[in-house]
């Protein structure tokens, strides 16, 4: 279960962030989340993330669109509502191509965006845990989940690591489910040491 307490280190440059991630890897410290204001090139490789499977989902949706378009048009034009256009074939594949293509793209795009939103937990009215308001502006953050069972040694190890890596700010953040949705309690990290 997700805890409510995090140690957050903020960096002012993407290179420092990557330095800190490498340090964490070396010292075997598990990073809960990495947050950046823009996509940092090569970050997912540093974090050892798996490649996203979004493109595979897109392909499956696209193929579905192709199949739906072709089969529905074939059924309508040959079986359900065949019309004689000067003796031309009812199954007129070339003139089915444009709509087949459009529906392939439509299904792939709509399906992929849906999967994207679901997997990322994005929907109108979602209440995110905003660790720091400057993360969407100019700060690069590393967060580490802590709870009561986390030993003080582990916490100070993380804090020292962040400071050594050049973090401009290290603090502890606590989310209280009873308070306002965007409220987070920030305290000096020394208080939990």
């Amino acid at each position: 279960m997700a805890s409510n307490k995090y140690i957050v280190g903020l960096f002012d440059h993407e290179d420092k962030l990557i330095g800190a991630i490498r340090k964490c890897k070396k010292e075997n410290v598990e990073i809960t989340d990495t947050l950046t204001p823009f996509p940092v090139h090569g970050l997912e490789d540093e974090l050892g993330y798996q490649d996203t499977r979004l493109h595979k989902a897109g392909f499956m949706f696209g193929i579905t669109g192709t199949f739906v378009a072709l089969s529905v048009m074939t059924f309508i034009m040959t079986t359900n509502y065949p019309i004689n256009f000067g003796g031309k074939p009812n199954f007129a594949l070339p003139s089915f191509i444009p709509i087949t293509f459009e529906l392939t793209v439509l299904f792939a795009a709509v399906g992929m965006v849906m999967v994207y939103c679901i997997r990322n937990g994005l929907f109108p009215g979602a209440v995110p845990r905003i660790l720091d308001e400057r993360i969407t502006d100019d700060r690069f953050a590393l967060s580490f989940e802590v709870d009561d069972s986390t030993s003080k040694e582990d916490i100070s190890k993380v804090v020292n690591l962040l400071k050594e890596a050049g973090a401009v700010e290290v603090s502890s953040k606590e989310f209280n489910d009873d308070t306002e949705i965007f409220e987070v309690e920030t305290s000096a990290v020394e208080s939990i040491l």
Partner: peptide
């Protein structure tokens, strides 16, 4: 409007993949 975006590395990874395929 932001759909609760936070900017985690995983979100950005999917974001880049989505925009490339779109």
């Amino acid at each position: 409007l932001s759909f609760g975006w936070t900017g985690t590395a995983k979100q950005w990874q999917r974001f880049e993949s989505l925009s490339l395929i779109l």
